[in-house]
């Protein structure tokens, strides 16, 4: 009689723990899926930022800004003085 009571209690405990474990597992799987989604979103965002950065750094845009905003221009060959080690840097 005592043994069967003990077994009964163990049975109930095991049944409850099974249910809890399942619930816990569902919660964790759901969390995992959410984290995965966030990771995908972050990766997408990163790619968007890389694309944006690349557009902002594009040579075309830099040239446009240099010419229009900063009023810069390409030097002519007459404007360039070439220095050579054999010319002796500092001295004339």
């Amino acid at each position: 009689m005592k043994v069967s009571l003990l077994l009964f209690i163990i049975l109930i405990a095991s049944a409850i723990s099974l249910v809890t474990a399942r619930h816990e597992s569902r919660k964790l799987v759901n969390e995992l899926e959410n984290e995965r989604n966030i990771s995908t979103k972050i990766q997408e965002h990163k790619r968007k930022l890389v694309a944006e950065q690349s557009t902002l750094k594009s040579p075309e845009r830099i040239e446009r800004f240099a010419k229009k905003k900063l009023k810069m221009k390409q030097p002519n060959s007459e404007d360039i003085i070439l220095l050579s080690p054999s010319l002796g840097g500092g001295k004339r």
Partner: peptide, 11 residues
Amino acid sequence: IDLDREVKRYV
């Protein structure tokens, strides 16, 4: 580098 040309321009 054309030394003569550069020196002249530098001076």
